[in-house]
Amino acid sequence: MMKDFTYHKVSSSTVSIHFDEDKCIGCNRCVEACQIDVLMPGDKTPKVIWPGECWYCGACVMECPIEGAISFRHPLMNQARFISKEELNK
């Protein structure tokens, strides 16, 4: 008999997605859509257990039936800069 499996959140300096507890209906469609399996089903919302393994494809948000239940952000270092044309010509 094999031993029981356990897991714990593996911390990472960046986390790509956050759940809005008030909006998430806990359907776990995002858990099933993630091809890396970085998410685990949770009590109210799924939990991001392996945030560092996310490849930032956005499939979880694409498959989410509730607008705004999952918010996606790039690591700060990867937030490309844009400026208005007026600013450029100043």
Partner: peptide, 25 residues
Amino acid sequence: EAKTRIPVYDNYNKRGFDPSKHLLQ
């Protein structure tokens, strides 16, 4: 394109990027 719908198109739009006004570095 792959990895653009949510990560680039939606995300940048939410950050306020407007292709008719802004320049992307």
